[in-house]
Design a protein around this nucleic acid. Structure first.
Length: 574
RNA sequence: CUGCCCGUAGCUCAACUGGAUAGAGCAACGGCCUUCUAAGCCGUAGGUUAGGGGUUCGAUUCCCUUCGGGCAGGCCA
């Protein structure tokens, strides 16, 4: 398959518009809002008619006359002011189903491959991962999976925080802990380790002095301090990896490209910016001015790349990273899955990158921002005592709650079985609840809502999959090559939903919006449930039975693939 | 003060380059299990899309404005 359904229809309608004298007019093909308006609608006629001062109904008539949808549409109608409503031919839809079933990629056309960096997760290694890292980690992971599935070369970049003054403090404390003989124990709880180090730093002047010396030694490349630093990072990364594994996120050590990796490039970047006349001194710091940014007083806002004490900032690191990604990784597109609060920073950073020539116009730089996680009280998500919630604890609770639920619904299943289901449901619920919402807005974290079996939730999706997979499994003998026939309305609607998979993925890739995929899968699951209620599968006979089994098969595979692209594991039974 | 994001049913959320009667789930009410998993399906009710103005054949969507909430704004990230 070379194109998606919308691409196909769009091409045909555009050709008809051209033939009707409206060259270059967009077809504006989209899924119909209601069944009585057909399966797809082309809305381009009205706009084209207006631009040419034509009668839209008349133009629509001409377009429909020229419109070649032989073997694709069963019915084409003009409605309202000039809508063209297209109902797909059931034979055509059946062919689509057949093609998808015979394709490992479910009929999703491969796109022109691009090299795409997805920068996500990026925890600070000084501390343990907490809920603040959840959204970046799972949104980024889903986007990486979708882009990869579409045929792009995805380079995940885990831009971890592994540099800065706090690491002097931590390595200094690590020495003390080792002398005390309990370094390994002390490092099992990083959060606690950080707290104690901070406490020593605040209370003991000698320790604070030593910590500051360690920062200098670390930056100076002192082997001993560097070894300690690396040891600490290693432990911290192990913590991250445990979380990634629990979450089912594909990040590995290979993807780690921390702040420290750019240390040697920071001074050259600043030097280069100065040489190009972009960076200038201001209050003893080195800043780059870009148009359109002002501060509180209305004065031009500088983008600081070097502090007055000579130190560099994350702004410098990010510029170095852009250079690296463009010149060494040869990327076409770079996605930064980072908290929306850093929006201005990225706007400035992108602008500087353009001006300095680090990123040519051919390279897309996109900040994939997202809102904060709120508790059910609409305030930032915290523990009951007001502390930050560790990600490991959150995930453990998710599994615990899911286990209780599964045990209540299905007490007869063996313990191990229930544990496995609880893991998929619990983790899936946390991820799906996040991914299913528009990432731009803040979102309310609610155990009850995400673990509900109704509505647009992970449990509902997983249940739909078990039904589809279950029917197929129980069928035993049937002809997997049987022709698909779509006679019932529910069959038509299900097939239609199945045929939209590729377009849903395209939309996710284009807009970097994972919730489009969730919305699609929810629609698919809903249509399947209706089909399941309306059309007996195992109890029907012959060709009808085989045809319906094949629809179940494709539904199961599409749900499994789609949920997989969200990083969610399916279950054969629950 | 400046900029960005948000404001949709009682609650949590949708609405795909502006499209037809703004859709789901929860909560409320009413139906459907000797029938493939009822963890489901069907139905009823629920809206001045924060307010006002503008552009348009058509606005939740674009522009202006007011209100309300969040965030950011030179040496943290």
């Amino acid at each position: 398959m070379k194109q998606t359904l919308i691409e196909l229809l769009d091409e045909r309608v555009r050709a008809a518009l051209d033939a009707a004298g409206c060259e270059g007019a967009p077809a504006v093909v989209q899924v119909s809002g209601r069944p009585e308006f057909g399966d797809y609608q082309a809305n381009g006629v009205m706009g084209a008619a207006k631009a040419r001062k034509m009668n839209p109904r008349q133009l629509a008539t001409q377009v429909v006359e020229k419109l070649d949808l032989v073997g694709i549409a069963g019915k084409v109608e003009i409605a309202g002011p000039g809508f063209i409503n297209i109902t797909l031919d059931d034979v055509f839809l059946a062919q689509q189903m057949d093609a998808a079933l015979n394709d490992e990629r479910l009929g999703v056309p491969a796109v022109e491959a691009k090299r795409v960096v997805v920068d996500y997760s990026s925890p600070n290694l000084a501390k343990e991962m907490h809920v603040g890292h959840l959204r970046s980690t799972i949104i980024g992971d889903a986007l990486a999976r979708v882009l990869r599935f579409l045929g792009h070369t995805v380079i995940a970049q885990n831009h971890v925080g592994d540099w800065g003054t706090q690491f002097g403090m931590l390595t200094a404390y690590l020495i003390e802990a080792e002398q005390g003989g309990d370094a390994t124990v002390a490092l099992t709880d990083l959060e606690d380790f950080y707290r104690r180090a901070k406490q020593r730093f605040d209370e003991d002047e000698a320790f604070a002095t030593r910590a500051r010396e360690y920062v200098v030694k670390l930056q100076g490349g002192d082997p001993e301090v560097n070894a300690l630093w690396r040891k600490f990072l290693d432990v911290s990364l192990h913590h991250c990896e445990a979380v990634y594994e629990k979450l089912g996120v594909g990040l590995t050590r290979e993807d780690v490209m921390g702040e420290s990796a750019y240390n040697d490039d920071l001074a050259p970047v600043v030097e280069d910016l100065r040489a190009k006349g972009l960076a200038v001194e201001s209050d003893d710091a080195i800043v780059v001015y870009v148009d359109g940014f002002v501060n509180r007083e209305g004065d031009p806002l500088g983008y600081i790349v070097q502090k007055k004490d000579g130190g560099f900032l994350y702004s410098t690191t990010d510029l170095a990273a852009v250079r690296y990604r463009v010149s060494k990784l040869h990327i076409d597109r770079s996605l930064y899955v980072v908290d929306a609060r850093q929006g201005q920073h990225f706007q400035q950073m992108f602008a500087v990158s353009r001006k300095a020539g680090y990123a040519p116009d051919s390279v897309q730089l996109e900040h994939v921002g997202f809102g904060v996680m709120l508790g059910e009280d609409n305030k930032p998500f915290k523990t009951r005592s007001g502390g930050t919630v560790k990600l490991a604890d959150l995930l453990a609770e998710a599994e615990e709650r899911a286990y209780a639920l599964v045990s209540e619904k299905n007490p007869d299943l063996p313990e191990a079985e229930r544990r496995a289901i609880a893991q998929a449901v619990g983790i899936g619920a946390v991820k799906y609840a996040d991914l299913s919402k528009n990432r731009n807005s803040d979102y309310v974290f609610s155990w009850d809502t995400m673990l509900a079996f109704e509505g647009n939730t992970a449990p509902y999706m997983l249940y739909a999959y078990t039904r589809a997979a279950g029917v197929r499994r129980k069928a035993e003998d049937w002809n997997p090559k049987a022709a698909i026939s779509l006679t019932e309305p529910a069959e038509h609607q299900l097939a239609l939903a199945l045929s939209r998979f590729a377009d849903a993925l395209q939309a996710v890739s284009r807009e970097t919006m994972p919730h489009f995929l969730c919305g699609y899968l929810y629609e698919l699951a809903t249509q399947f449930m209706r089909f399941y209620e309306a059309c007996p599968v195992l109890k029907s006979e012959g060709d009808v039975r085989a045809s319906r089994l094949r629809l179940c098969e494709l539904t199961a595979r599409t749900l499994k693939t789609g949920l997989g692209l969200l990083g969610i594991q399916t279950l054969e039974q629950m």
